[in-house]
């Protein structure tokens, strides 16, 4: 069986590949998390705003609370890539 020799270049390429995968996972999974959380909040917020327009500010506030998750994911991804 041939033994694969891991050169420095191969190791670096592998590392950056894994970093890219990690970045993708970070954005993708956090995006899904945010989406799941915003799904029900958003529905309720639109309903509340339809009933009473003054609710808009508060409703928007509630809706965007989960966005923090994806922002964290994004920051992690960008730090991994650059």
């Amino acid at each position: 069986m041939a033994v694969e020799v891991m050169t420095v270049e191969v190791a670096e390429a592998t590392a950056s590949g894994f970093a890219a995968i990690g970045a993708g996972l970070a954005v993708g999974l956090t995006g899904m998390g945010t989406g799941l959380a915003q799904f029900s909040i958003g529905g309720a917020a639109v309903g509340a705003t339809a009933e009473n327009k003054d609710m808009f500010g508060l409703a928007l506030l509630f809706t965007v609370i989960p966005e923090t998750i994806v922002i964290f994911g994004l920051v992690v991804a960008l730090l991994l890539l650059f």
Binding site: E67, T68, I71, F72, L74, V75, L78
Partner: peptide, 12 residues
């Protein structure tokens, strides 16, 4: 922290 990081969207 989260509110400051939220401004990262400007770049993203």
């Amino acid at each position: 922290i989260s509110h400051v990081l939220s401004y990262a969207r400007l770049a993203a």
